[in-house]
Amino acid sequence: MTSPTPRPAPDRSEAVLSRLQLLVTRKLDGLLQGDYAGLLPGPGSEAGESREYRPGDDVRRMDWPVTARTTTPHVRRTVADRELETWLALDLSASLDFGTGQWLKREVVVAAAAAITHLTVRGGNRIGAVIGTGGGASAPARRWRGGPPPAGPGVLTRLPARSGRKEAQGLLRAVAGTAIQPGRGDLGALVEMLNRPPRRRGVAVVVSDFLAPTEQWARPLRKLRVRHDVLAIEVVDPRELELPDVGVLPVVDPESGELHEVQTADPRLRQRYAEAAAAQRAAIAAALRGAGAAHLRLRTDRDWLLDMVRFVAAQRHARTRGTTR
């Protein structure tokens, strides 16, 4: 007889969410909240005023009547939609249950979800989520009906998109109460859940460490980008980038359970590890760039909220200058 999978204590989850809400409200409210449709300001669909063409502008938005009258190239501005549907794909596989900085990686996932929810929930916008845990992706997707999502190997859970702060808080409580399962998750299957069924154009945010092979998730992400604005939030721990010199270090693969002992006193080993980690992160960044997704990296040993503020501010500044990246 197996014992039930432990879940985070409800009181602790509520305290963490309350603290996160306070942090997000203090630093983001009034600073980044605007009339944009979601976290990343998109071009919108409603016609607005014209302005002179700048290098980097989309030529498909050329305003030919104004260009003909003024003999100067002009583009038509568009107003961002006021109602948006945002979907979160949250990877809570076993590799996210790790952290050597101020936070565990799974805590950064929950924190990022809280910040994005705060940025998009106003104005009648709807937000939903799909959650993937470990154990493989063989189990069918389950629909959330309130309370913590069900436990089980390879669970993919869909939390329907709803509007309102109360519903958003319920979504975050469900995310925080999700138990991580042992075994490998399928990030590609998780992203594919955002492609089916087809939805109207909106924002899709994928939060993961992206440690799964790129060929597993790159194609579904490219498919997602065809219809939606996509933001990929990569969660990284410093020990995944370099090893400390601490002698013999026992390490356990959280997805397979395999135990290894690593002699970190060997400088050549540490150098090879750092080079391999850098190559892996470069491959992840290239795959995200190839999929057309905006890329934000959050670390467990840094102020994730400050990094998010800087990222969103840089994106909006790039938009005002006529560039997209």
Rank of each mutant, 00 (worst) to 15 (best):
P4W: 00
T5I: 14
P6I: 11
R7H: 09
P8A: 12
A9Q: 13
R12E: 14
E14Y: 00
E14C: 04
L17D: 05
L17W: 09
L20N: 04
L23G: 02
L23F: 10
R26P: 00
L31Y: 11
Q33N: 12
Y36A: 15
L39W: 08
E46V: 10
E49F: 06
E49R: 12
E49K: 07
Y53I: 04
P55L: 07
G56E: 08
R60I: 11
D63N: 14
P65I: 11
P65R: 15
V66Y: 01
T70R: 11
T71K: 13
P73L: 12
R76M: 13
V79F: 05
V79Q: 13
E83L: 12
L88C: 05
A89C: 09
L90E: 03
A94Y: 01
S95G: 08
L96D: 03
L96H: 04
D97S: 09
G101D: 05
W103I: 03
K105D: 04
E107G: 14
V108H: 06
V110M: 05
A112W: 00
L119T: 05
L119G: 05
L119Q: 10
G123D: 12
R126S: 13
I127H: 03
I127E: 03
G128M: 02
G128N: 02
V130R: 08
G132M: 09
T133A: 12
G134L: 02
G134T: 07
G135Y: 01
A139S: 15
A139H: 12
A141K: 01
P153G: 09
G154I: 07
T157E: 07
T157Q: 08
R158H: 10
R158T: 12
S163A: 15
G164Y: 08
G164T: 08
E167G: 03
E167H: 14
E167Y: 07
Q169F: 09
L171E: 02
A174C: 06
A174K: 04
A176L: 03
G177V: 03
A179R: 11
A179E: 11
I180E: 06
P182L: 06
R184G: 00
R184C: 00
R184H: 04
L190A: 02
E192D: 15
P198L: 02
R200G: 06
G202M: 04
V203P: 00
V203Q: 10
A204K: 01
V205H: 02
V207M: 06
T214E: 05
T214V: 14
E215F: 11
P220E: 01
R222E: 02
L224V: 09
V226H: 09
A232P: 12
V235Y: 02
P238E: 10
R239G: 01
L241I: 05
E242M: 03
E242N: 06
E242F: 01
P244W: 11
V246F: 09
V246P: 12
G247H: 10
V248G: 05
V252W: 03
T264Q: 07
P267N: 07
P267M: 11
R270V: 08
Q271K: 15
A274T: 14
A274F: 08
Q280T: 15
A283I: 07
I284L: 07
A286Q: 15
L288P: 05
R289G: 15
A293Q: 08
A293D: 09
L296T: 10
L296C: 12
D301L: 13
R302D: 14
L306G: 10
A314N: 15
A318K: 03
R321N: 14
R321H: 15
T323G: 10
